[in-house]
Write a protein that binds this DNA or RNA. Sequence first.
DNA 1: ATGGCAAGGGTTCCTTGA
Length: 272
Amino acid sequence: MAVAQVFRFKNKITMKIASFNVNSIKVRLEHVKKFLIEENIDVLLLQELKCIKENFPFNEIENLGFKVIVNGQKSYNGVAIISKFPIKLISNFLPNISNGKDDGQARFLDVKILDFRIICVYLPNGNPIETEKYEYKLNWLKRLTSYCKKLYQTNEKIIIGGDFNIIQKDIDCYDPKVWINDALFTDKVKNYLKEILNFGFVDAYRIIKPSSQEYSFWDYQNGAWQKDHGIRIDLFLLSPEVADLLDDTGIFKKIRGHSKPSDHVPIWLKLN
DNA sequence: ATGGCAAGGGTTCCTTGA
């Protein structure tokens, strides 16, 4: 009995996965390195690199013992996945509904790490509404919903993480009145997220903390951080197979108070 | 006391973000 217990303990998979919209990897490199090391991160999803692949600091990250996959773009967007375990690229774009092709914006990575299917997303902001930016966001959500539906049917261990640019509910922002008619908070946008959740995905944060009010983004302007006027828009969506493994989750708020912070902070989860 | 951001790219300001 004791032997069996030790055996089981030794073979238990423990993983800490995080997601961080860095708002320029160049400016936030030291924050990322410190976070990876001090918080014992196994897998990190990054958004808003704001650089092309050639300018990503591969050496700095790989020297810490990580593998890296980058989907870069000049000036805007850009996503990456950093992992202690080998990464196999499945797709670096979210296919168009009409022709299955890339749309040229680096906002998506789908990879396999161990037996997990891990998807890194950076959704469009979409403001102002009733413009083509908003239409692009709705179209992106339509494509993501379609992708998630197919993905769900594979019954794999799926983790979709990143900056969703969606405030799901009133509790996910300091003042819902401020966000009326904002592209992060319209019914159309929220309904796409609901549809994805209705397939059977769950918001990891709400499993562990059903009624907590915490944020993952504070605007640089108007003293938003000092007044705690934030929003929770960075999310991990889990398939049931992963939700069963969820041990803990949280928002790494303190990094927002450091010098030269991103306007987002990392979110993380532990699987056991 | 009443205006208050940041980053990239490229130039002395524009775009984008949320």
